[in-house]
């Protein structure tokens, strides 16, 4: 087995593009679920709105890339309003069902042949819509060290991506430690009590939904740009569920949890996948048990199992303390 290769792949993934995307998506979800208690199961929809806004604006309508970012943010605000207006007055599970439905609506519409001309159908949109972004790339060659490798474009995406993650995390930290954030946390605990203290709960929930959604759409920008393509099936409900896994892995309602969670998540996924793949290829695992092309399926199974076990045994996250666990049980 080629352990150097495994290490390269794993390390690259731990700080790579996917980690940035999932960290951003989970920061948004942390605002919803971690701080406000909103059960948003449509985070994939917010990513899709961001990604498609960029791809469609630039490829189909020839809008400059940097204006397409504004369009994406505007669209995600509208999406949040559409989701929030009917559901934020209702019980939490209604929001869950409506958001998951809305995200699926977006995916099905984007992949439909009916809107093929604009949205690209099931193949999505591929092209050069990120050109304006990569024109700014100062790196002429990629990073080539013995333990980590990035292409020039990936390096640029990763550096810009982590800068965005840092800025947004800092802003989140300021916000959740302000009186505004205190109202959100109180709503998570008991919204009727918060109403009785003269706070407009509906408004705060809406603000939370919008901000977390906008952050999700920024994750979508990174997703689209890093690959210079958008594909509808990348934005399925599985994406939302894995974002939850990331968040819970890091421990919800902590500012740094999405980053830590995303890093652990991708470390584990790539490490396990590479180990399995090599073990199968090298014959340590018999072919009749796991075929090479079944490794991906095993990976998904482990992700599901991991989410379950985490939620059962460590709902406070890998590094959370016992005290909060006790509180969880009582609440």
């Amino acid at each position: 087995m080629d352990f150097l290769f495994i290490a390269q792949q794993t390390l690259g993934a731990t700080i790579g593009v996917n980690t940035v995307i999932f960290a951003l998506a989970a920061i948004g979800l942390n605002m919803h679920f971690g701080y406000t208690g909103l059960l948003n199961f449509g985070q994939a929809g917010f990513l899709a709105v961001g990604a498609y806004s960029v791809a469609v604006s630039v490829e189909t309508y020839g809008v400059p890339l940097f204006i397409s970012f504004l369009i994406g943010i505007l669209n995600s605000v509208i999406f949040a309003l559409i989701l929030g207006i009917p559901t934020l007055r209702l019980r939490a599970d209604y929001l869950a069902i409506v958001t998951i439905a809305a995200a699926e609506i977006i995916r099905k519409v984007t992949r439909s042949a009916t809107f093929n001309d604009v949205l690209g159908g099931s193949d999505g949109i591929s092209g050069k819509f990120g050109k304006d972004f990569f024109d700014f790339n100062p790196f002429k060659s990629g990073l080539e060290t013995s333990i980590i490798r990035f292409s020039a474009n990936d390096l640029w995406v990763v550096i810009v991506g982590w800068t965005i993650v840092a800025i947004i995390t800092f802003l989140m930290w300021v916000m959740v430690n302000s009186p505004w954030g205190r109202v959100l946390k109180a709503i998570r605990e008991d919204e009727d009590a918060v109403r009785s203290l003269g706070k407009n709960v509906y408004l705060y929930k809406m603000q939370s939904l919008i901000i977390g959604g906008v952050i999700g759409s920024i994750a979508g920008f990174v997703y689209a740009l890093s690959r210079q393509s958008v594909q509808p099936d990348n934005y399925s409900t599985a994406l939302t569920f894995f974002t939850y896994t990331v968040l819970i892995l890091g421990g919800a309602a902590r500012v740094f949890s999405p980053i830590i969670g995303a890093m652990i998540f991708w470390f584990l996924i790539v490490f396990i996948e590479q180990m399995l793949r090599q073990a199968v290829t090298a014959g340590y695992i018999p072919e009749w048990l796991i075929g090479v092309n079944q490794v991906g399926q095993i990976r998904f199974m482990l992700m599901g199992l991991g989410l379950m076990l985490l939620m059962i045994f460590r709902p406070q996250g890998i590094f959370g303390d016992k005290k909060e666990l006790a509180l969880d049980a009582r609440a």
């Binding site: 109180a186 605990e189 008991d190 009590a193 918060v194 203290l197 909060e324 509180l327």
Partner: peptide, 13 residues
């Protein structure tokens, strides 16, 4: 301002 029959302390605050 009202209070509730079942106390609504905000537990994780």
């Amino acid at each position: 301002v009202r209070t509730f029959q079942l106390t609504k302390a905000l537990y994780r605050l």
